[in-house]
C-alpha cells in the first residue's frame, strides 16, 4: 500500500530533529513524514524531473501548512494533500516560466515519445521500463489517471475527489489510457 511505503525510515529519523516546534510545525512535520515520499513521487510523475519535483513537493507542503485551517476533517487528508500537490504541478506546467523557458521540453514532459530520462536510460531494454516509458508518453490527462490509480493505488472514488471529476470520466480515461498503452506496447514503440 502507498501509505505503508510512505511510512519509511524518514519518520523516526526526523522526529528527533523537530521536537521543540510549535504544534502547527509538529503537525507539518508529521504530515511530511507520512506523505513526503508519496508527494515527491506524485510530483515527479507530472514533471519527470527530480529537482523540479523536489521544489513542487516542498511548495505543496508549504501550501498545506498555510491552508491547514481550510482542511475539513470530514474529508481525507490524503486526498486533500494530493489535490494540493497536483494543483501545484499543474500550475507549474501552465506557468509562463515553463512556456517561455522550456517550450521544447514542455512537449517532452507532457508527451514523451522516444526520449527516456537520464534516470531511466539504463532501463531502456527492460520490459518494465517499456511500460514506464509508455506511461510517461501518455497525454497528461491519461497519464494522470494511470499514475493515481496504478501507481498511487487510489480508488476511482478517491481520484474523483482529488481531480474533482465525474467518476465516469475517470473510468473512461482509464480505459482509453490502457488502450493507448496496449497499442504502444503492441507496436513496440519502446
Amino acid at each position: 500500500m502507498a501509505n505503508n511505503f510512505a511510512k519509511s525510515s524518514h519518520h523516526t529519523e526526523l522526529n528527533d530533529i523537530y521536537t521543540d516546534q510549535p504544534s502547527e510545525e509538529t503537525w507539518l512535520n508529521d504530515l511530511m513524514n507520512e506523505y513526503g515520499q508519496e508527494i515527491i513521487w506524485l510530483a515527479y510523475s507530472y514533471v519527470r524531473d527530480r529537482a523540479i519535483a523536489e521544489d513542487l513537493a516542498q511548495n505543496a507542503f508549504i501550501k498545506c501548512y498555510q491552508k491547514r485551517e481550510e482542511f475539513k476533517n470530514n474529508s481525507s487528508i490524503k486526498t486533500w494533500i494530493y489535490r494540493i500537490t497536483i494543483n501545484c504541478c499543474k500550475d507549474y506546467l501552465r506557468s509562463s516560466y515553463v512556456k517561455r523557458n522550456i517550450p521544447t521540453n514542455m512537449k517532452e514532459i507532457l508527451n514523451r515519445e522516444r526520449a527516456p530520462s537520464s534516470e531511466s536510460a539504463y532501463m531502456e531494454k527492460d520490459t518494465s521500463s517499456t511500460l514506464i516509458e509508455c506511461v510517461f508518453s501518455l497525454g497528461p490527462k491519461y497519464r494522470e489517471v494511470i499514475i493515481l490509480h496504478y501507481f498511487e493505488e487510489l480508488k476511482v472514488r478517491e481520484i474523483k475527489e482529488i481531480l474533482q471529476l465525474n467518476e465516469n470520466t475517470i473510468k473512461t480515461r482509464l480505459k482509453k489510457a490502457k488502450e493507448i498503452l496496449r497499442k504502444k506496447i503492441d507496436r513496440g514503440d519502446f
Partner: peptide, 21 residues
C-alpha cells in the same frame, strides 16, 4: 506492477528526506 517497477527504477533516487523537510 507499475508502482514497484517505478520505485525500483525511475524513482529509485527520488527521495523526500531531511534536506527537503
Amino acid at each position: 506492477n507499475l508502482r514497484n517497477d517505478m520505485i525500483s527504477s525511475e524513482l529509485k533516487n527520488i527521495k523526500f528526506g531531511s534536506k527537503q523537510k
